[in-house]
Design a protein around this nucleic acid. Structure first.
Lengths: 180, 180, 180, 180
DNA sequence: TATGAATGAGTCTTCATTCAT
DNA sequence: TATGAATGAAGACTCATTCAT
């Protein structure tokens, strides 16, 4: 039923009509209200879930094999390919639209970039020690890298031949230590 | 009066009420209709203008002094600092929202990434010849670079301390030829 | 199951949701429809029953002991104390709401004040002969007395400390022959 | 525009559709929202006004000529004849319906019967001293009298041939000192 | 030219009623 | 017989657009 994510992600909170979600889910409009109190609540729930899963996703990097750079490369690949697209788009709407319920706004404020930096910092520092990663301040490196990634995912590049999703190796240039 | 751009850029076409534009412009709602036939027309006009200006802006790169890399760096800096922010956001809404008038959709389809690639290709090729730029296929390099830029601008990073706008030098790593 | 009366009486026909009746009765919503064709039918049935019982109740006055005034006093006391409250409230909704099913409206039109007057007239005439009751035209006396009573019962005075239910003796002043 | 009172009074808050008020007022539904934030607000406003006017009305009794009994008789006549009907009906809905906005509920709780008793008590005491009024405790006398009146007005007797509005003289028997 | 009152189509939400289990 | 999930029609409310002034 949370495939309402699909509609919200593409159209934002106002652009989405409950009837769209309903027909996307293959049920009647009325039934939606049996499961979700309101459009706002539904949206907020999705935002919450998006944030939770994103954190889990980021943390999973430590389970990946290989060197720090290997890990980063794999996670990046995953993010780029996988369905996380919708989450990025949803979060973008949640961040930028003014019609977002206050509850959702609060959720977002609590879950800042800092959260992700804290998770990734040890890995990046290790990567720098091993000489794999560029020597910029890790905070900045991470923050910029995630911003770049967010931007790319938000564009909804798939299905738009105008934009081109950069290959992972290209992206990694930002953080890789340029061969001396 | 076209400071309606401000509202459309931030809130998208549905999120924007004519009354918002009116009060932002300091006039009455009714007066808007003396200058623009409809909300859709107004939006379409803005999109048209955004595209026109973007092309002019890109072309202006050839007026800039210095080597190809210098030119690219300066243009990038300009884009990042200047008010082009709003254009990127507007175009993002125009590209992703389904409520956009067909006329605007058509405009966008006509003005593809190809347009920009064609403009920039000679410059990039020159840069590669001079050994400044990475050796990837110029088309791909340009397309990816513009995608990255679009993504960053779309995020509306200003006013959100969570994201961090990468420094220009960091961004350039993407296209610079790594020191051998 | 007819304790749906409770809900209808308090909330009127529109204010009452079938789910309220169901939970008041301790059954599921769906089950209600096994016993009553529709909300309207249920309401109509209750109105019918209310009217029937009111007539029986009024007629029972002749079974009471004592003089005409004694009888009237006892019946009044009964009405004031007993659960007839709900019937008065139900009938008030039935009389004043426009959403009442036509069938119920018809029922009410057939069962006019005249019905009650016809029942009580002999008793009042007797009371007047015996010098207990005021000498006004019996029709008027009865009609006014019942109107007063209806009004009081309709107010739903219980549970509202603002109103005060008059003592029976106070009420009787309306019809008692003032001591010469 | 407050002739919305007419519809609310007859049909209660749920039974009333904004479109009814609109067509009763001869305007479009949308226009209602230019003057009143919402149905609830409108209802609350009417309740407020009803209470204010009722107090003014009651207080005006001291401007009337004649003995206390004369004053009471005139006020009663006025209440019975005049358009206060709608106010009584409105207040009844406000008191008994559960769908009434909290703000309105609060208003009602603040404006108790006590308010009216305080206003009328001096008059009734004077009337008792002059031997015109029954010797019951004035509080009780007033409270019961007002309850009776409220009940009668709430019934919406006009337009229902079944009920009969008692003549004023009949009603006064309730408070008049029976001739010794 | 400028205003803002007025309209009505469109969206969210509720709830009587049905129906598979 | 009993449940409660599912449907869809109806009502509150918003807002693009018009129009009298």
């Amino acid at each position: 039923m949370e495939a309402a994510l699909k509609v919200f992600a593409r159209r934002g909170i106002i652009g989405t009509k409950m009837s769209m979600i309903a027909s996307e889910a293959g049920v009647s409009t009325g039934l939606l209200y049996r499961y979700f109190d309101s459009k706002d609540k539904l949206f907020t729930t999705l935002v919450q879930q998006a944030m939770d899963e994103s954190i889990v996703g980021i943390k999973s990097i430590y389970q990946l094999p290989g060197s720090p750079l290997d890990k980063i490369k794999m996670l990046t690949t995953e993010i780029l390919n996988e369905g996380s697209q919708l989450y990025f788009m949803l979060m973008h709407h949640a961040r930028t639209s003014d019609e977002v319920p206050i509850t959702a706004k609060k959720l977002i404020e609590e879950n800042t970039m800092k959260t992700y930096i804290d998770i990734l910092e040890p890995l990046f520092i290790e990567g720098q020690k091993e000489g794999e990663l560029a020597a910029d301040p890790p905070c900045e490196l991470i923050s910029c890298y995630l911003s770049l990634l967010s931007g790319l995912m938000t564009l909804n590049i798939q299905g738009d031949e105008n934009y081109q999703m950069p290959k992972v190796d290209l992206l990694l240039r930002f953080i890789i230590r340029s061969s001396s």
